[in-house]
Design a protein around this nucleic acid. Structure first.
Lengths: 240, 240
DNA sequence: TCAAGAAAACATGTCATACAGGTTTTGGGC
DNA sequence: GCCCAAAACCTGTATGACATGTTTTCTTGA
């Protein structure tokens, strides 16, 4: 029920602005532009589409808000590098309007991260392995400062996604980071004793070790265990 | 390396428009608005933020492009129901600018759909089971019309995602549909004989049967087999 | 000849105003 | 109390203006 009609990116949406958005994205496709390549100026587009600058500007601005293009004063817009941009906005919107629950996000994360961690174990470079291990260590070293632990926790999972060498996984995991950042502490608080908290941190160490060892199966098992514990913590905290 | 800084939805992006976007999304959060609820008018926002209507309009328009809000002439903007909106735009952008490969998308789809199909087998309502089966049947009945098969194929996978009862899965799968629509026929063409094509369609029937039988393990196995064949078809066709 | 710097051309960012056309509210008439 | 027309309100689009940032061009001086 997410989309009624088969509506590609935008399409059939009436109004000059939507048409302009389509014209710009089509320009990118037709010209085969890649990240960094320059787009026509607003004045050019105004002429080409025979609409006011107002309309063209709203189109550019919309694409910029989605981070499909980069804009800055004085210079023409350019094609943007892949970025969570719009994706995280959609997720956050879904959560704040109560159309998505935190648990549902955790289920998606678990599903995806069981895969990213396995791929990371197979494909990681040595530098990536080192980075992942570094975050696990930083969590351990700062275990008395929850917010620092959280940031390294998030960085840990993002690093694993990157090491999967599939940008789509990175995209999705990063899009969830905002929500994670707002709920993480809830799970942390349910781990009453310091021993429990350290055990949770050690779970990350286990995952890192399995990745370094190049053992995808073991890595996936540790990741699954980690998520099961996290979800249990959230449920204990009464997150619906 | 998808996002450099820890940048929530928008944040730290200079400019009045970004500030306005934040103000609007914050309004939604603070007021606890849900789908359908009305937002302030552009004039209200203009006064509240002490900026020109141009700025406010570009902010509204940006959120509308991401489908976080609905706009239409004469009436105030309202909070939108969850929609792939921006998500599919991001994916399409990644593919057309060659930052994402079709194979990478198939890996993500496989990962996610192994889960959605298992959840669907556990959670589907009878109506959902019937719908899934219907698409499998329609594929069979129209096996000589590739484009019709394709649309039912896509609808089949979307229906399974819906039956998982986790809107985030639906969101992601639907976001991929546009790309699927543009590459599907390539895989189809590699199935030289009609018998091969029918065998592929029967794979969908097997999945549907497993869902109806409420057998998540079997459903996941059929789904995996289906994806392995699809990916092989794409590779045979030379999709990098 | 060439390099540095000023000027011009070009680009986006923001504002103000205007009007067309759609939607909701108001108020009058019955 | 109900219906309908007018008013009020709202978004969609266009135009013009000016500030400010960036690139290109041209001049000038060594």
């Amino acid at each position: 029920m997410v989309s009624d009609r088969s509506m590609g990116p935008d399409e059939t949406n009436p109004g000059l602005v939507s048409a302009a958005i389509q014209a710009i994205t089509q320009h990118i496709r037709v010209e085969g532009l890649g990240p960094g390549d320059l787009l026509p100026s607003e004045a050019d587009m105004t002429r080409k589409l025979s609409v006011s600058r107002t309309v063209v500007r709203e189109a550019f601005r919309s694409l910029s808000a989605m981070r499909l293009i980069d804009m800055s004063a004085g210079r023409r817009a350019s094609v943007a590098k892949l970025d969570i941009g719009a994706m995280s906005m959609v997720i956050e919107h879904g959560v704040t309007t109560e159309q998505i629950s935190v648990q549902q996000i955790y289920d998606v994360r678990r599903t995806i991260e069981m895969r990213t961690v396995a791929l990371a174990a197979l494909r990681r470079t040595d530098a990536e392995a080192a980075e992942i291990q570094k975050y696990a260590r930083l969590m351990r070293e700062n275990h008395q400062a929850p917010e620092i632990v959280m940031e390294h926790d998030i960085a840990f999972h993002e690093a694993i996604a990157r090491a999967s060498h599939n940008p789509v996984f990175s995209l999705i995991i990063n899009a969830f980071s905002g929500v994670t950042r707002r709920t993480w502490v809830i799970g942390w608080r349910t781990r009453a004793t310091e021993a429990e908290q350290i055990k949770m941190i050690e779970g990350h160490g286990d995952i890192a070790q399995a990745i370094i060892a190049g053992n995808p199966q073991l890595a996936a098992e540790h990741m699954a265990a980690h998520f099961d514990k996290s979800v249990k913590a959230l449920i204990d905290a009464g997150i619906a």
